[in-house]
Design a binder for these strands. Structure first.
Lengths: 235, 235
DNA sequence: TAAGATAATGACTGACAGTCACTAAATTAG
DNA sequence: CTAATTTAGTGACTGTCAGTCATTATCTTA
């Protein structure tokens, strides 16, 4: 009696189709600019059907961003699978976040958009809860990577894994948003390569938290070998 | 013949009244939730009058955020007027940004909200240009502070003032947004004091860019005197 | 094949952004 | 002081769109 199961699958498939269509429309027109009729047309469904699957336009938008979180976590996990010592893992995680930004810019933007507290009132409890589940998975992963580095004695013992994750994450996010907002302006007009800036600031943060054990391991790759200080170090 | 002038003043005053009313309504209901009729009622005007002063609800919202930028710049300038050496000035600037967050949380949120690229298409060219003017003033101020520190030999010479400003700014912004989004969660549930985290990460960044000259000046106040490393330093 | 359950539809409603013909008030000219 | 003219303000009206729901279509089961 696989009819129930087939129906479940079909329902799920339809839900995914709607999400595909919604993603395209939201990317093209933004949350405010997109109409549910647009999305229905893109999914080759009627408007009413959309509301059988999602409670509101905002819920649908949030469901799309949850996909973004899944993609992000997938990239993180694939990166971690490459192995490497705990510090390397942190670097790789940072790179993975950059990759997400580069290759899934639209999701990055949607996630940034929905982070705004103003948006949270506009979605259903259920969808918000699902979002938090996805969020928690990502944060669980990130803090796991940090914890490894602390436990292995590569980052200072007093640090809280989540705190370390938060620092690096927020720093990257802040700069990537600036980059997204106006890369052209900063690069061409101001002569600043924000990608370089980002690598630099991540290094500063990470190196400040690294133990001597880790510093020795990465001695040659340390970023802040300032001209005057590198001489000191050799002594 | 001061009639022209008086009319100008009255017009400006009315504009400010509308902005006062709009601020209250936007704070209470958000951009999407607020209606122009709400704002008109709060300003004791008719809807049509609002449109004599602003082109759209979004333009009005952006005009309110521009006030936020003015307030921010005012706080920055007041802080700078207290004096201090170049590094102290940077610390004070960072504190001033925190003060802005604490005391003008609503403006902080509105600014964060409008930073989203999706919003930029919804406002008039004129208003966006005005916003950029305000933005440029703030950035001019910030990079000026950084430039002083570099020129005085307190930050490494190869650094670009804007780049330094960008690093500290983005880092603070990223963490303050997390704080705003869910301080309760991080503090009570995860046991992390993000304000402390913010001070720490700002220290890490700043100290990584400081010259020996500056490091000596601030030796006793350096944050990252990790247990194991502080002994080294004494040698 | 009929009855019943499930999925999909699109016409309809209410709310709201933005407009514009009109009214009110202030200014200027005679 | 009054009429003419300019400027400021109004609110009824329009088009659009989110969300609903009575109806229709399709699929399942007896």
């Amino acid at each position: 009696m696989g009819i129930q199961e087939r129906k479940e699958r079909e329902k799920e498939a339809r839900r995914e189709e709607i999400l595909d269509a919604a993603y395209k429309v939201f990317v093209a027109k933004g949350l405010a600019g997109a109409t549910v009729d647009d999305i229905a047309a893109a999914a080759e469904l009627s408007k009413g059907t959309i509301y059988l699957y999602f409670r509101s336009k905002e819920d649908l938008y949030l469901a799309v961003t949850n996909r973004g979180l899944d993609i992000m976590l997938g990239i993180f996990e694939a990166t971690a699978a490459q192995g490497g010592d705990p510090i390397r893992q942190i670097w790789n995680l940072s790179d993975a976040y950059n990759s997400f930004y580069e290759e899934h810019r639209e999701y990055f933007r949607m996630l940034a958009f929905f982070e705004n507290p103003e948006m949270h009132d506009t979605v259903s409890e259920e969808m918000l809860a699902e979002c938090q589940t996805h969020d928690a998975k990502v944060w669980g992963f990130v803090s796991g990577v940090m914890k490894n580095a602390i436990d292995a004695g590569y980052l200072h013992a007093g640090l809280n894994p989540l705190e370390v994750g938060m620092m690096l994450w927020s720093n990257s996010t802040g700069l990537l948003r600036q980059l997204d907002r106006n890369e052209e302006y900063w690069h061409a007009r101001m002569g600043i390569d924000l990608r370089k800036t980002l690598r630099m600031s991540n290094s500063f943060l990470l190196e400040a938290m690294m133990t001597d054990k880790a510093m020795q391991l990465y001695h040659d790759q340390l970023i802040h070998h300032w001209p005057t200080r590198s001489q000191e170090k050799k002594s």
